[in-house]
Computed example of a mutant assay.
Amino acid sequence: MRVVIQRVKKASVTIDGKIFSEIEKGLLVFLGIEAEDTTEDAEWLAGKISKMRIFPDENDAMNLSLQDIVGECLVVSQFTLHASTKKGNRPSFIKAARPDYAIPLYENFISQMQNEISATVKTGIFGAMMDISLVNDGPVTIIMDSKNRE
């Protein structure tokens, strides 16, 4: 699994012109699922993301986690995180998992995140065309890959 995590002041998902979900201070997590991913990847990422110390403490040092600040989380599926750009100018998405495999892992990741934090985890709709709005806080943007454990 690959994720792009953005620390946000607020974020929302709009589908068909209507706000589907929105959060205030917390993390926007774009989640890309690969055909080789497992529930172990979801568990590792959820644990790591929820405990990652990227929020400022009273001295403005990044010392607090999503758990510490009781922040919100918005998870958005994004197969394009597995784009291969090696050949030509059109990305290939061959590594991205098919929906029948990816949806249960997406739901598992959301469940794992929910187990890790106090706030309700908000989402988009898997496979839908979504407009994402956000106010990046910092900006702080982090990329992680569960296969590399980084």
Rank of each mutant, 00 (worst) to 15 (best):
E72K: 03
N136T: 01
K9G: 13
G127D: 11
F55L: 08
I117C: 12
E72L: 01
Q78R: 04
I49G: 03
V76Q: 06
I110S: 04
Q67Y: 12
T85W: 02
E72V: 09
G127N: 10
R98S: 00
S118G: 14
I49C: 12
S77Q: 08
R2F: 05
G88S: 03
F126R: 02
A83H: 10
H82I: 03
D68K: 05
P104N: 08
L28D: 15
S118M: 07
V76S: 06
D41P: 11
E43A: 11
I23Q: 02
V75D: 08
P99F: 00
V29T: 08
F126D: 07
N115R: 11
A102N: 10
S50K: 07
T141N: 12
K122N: 07
M1R: 09
L28Q: 15
M129E: 15
K86P: 06
V121Y: 04
A96T: 11
R90D: 02
G47T: 12
Q112M: 02
L27R: 05
D16K: 13
S21G: 10
Q67T: 14
I33L: 07
L66N: 09
N59Y: 09
I49Y: 10
D131I: 09
R53C: 09
A96W: 05
T85H: 02
T141I: 06
I125V: 13
D37Q: 05
N89C: 00
I125F: 05
F55E: 08
P91M: 07
I5L: 13
N59F: 04
A83E: 05
G26Q: 12
V121K: 00
L74F: 05
D41Y: 12
R53A: 05
E43W: 00
F109K: 02
P99V: 01
V29Q: 13
I103N: 10
W44F: 13
T120Q: 13
L134V: 05
T80K: 01
Y101D: 11
I33N: 03
A128V: 08
I125R: 04
T14N: 15
I103V: 15
I143L: 12
P99A: 02
L81S: 10
L45V: 01
S65G: 11
S65Q: 13
E22A: 10
T14V: 15
A46H: 13
S50T: 03
T38E: 09
K95D: 10
A61L: 14
G88N: 04
W44H: 04
A42C: 14
I15R: 02
V3M: 14
K18N: 13
P139Y: 06
A46D: 06
T38D: 09
W44P: 05
D37W: 04
I117P: 02
R149H: 15
G47D: 12
V76E: 10
A11T: 09
Q112I: 01
L28S: 14
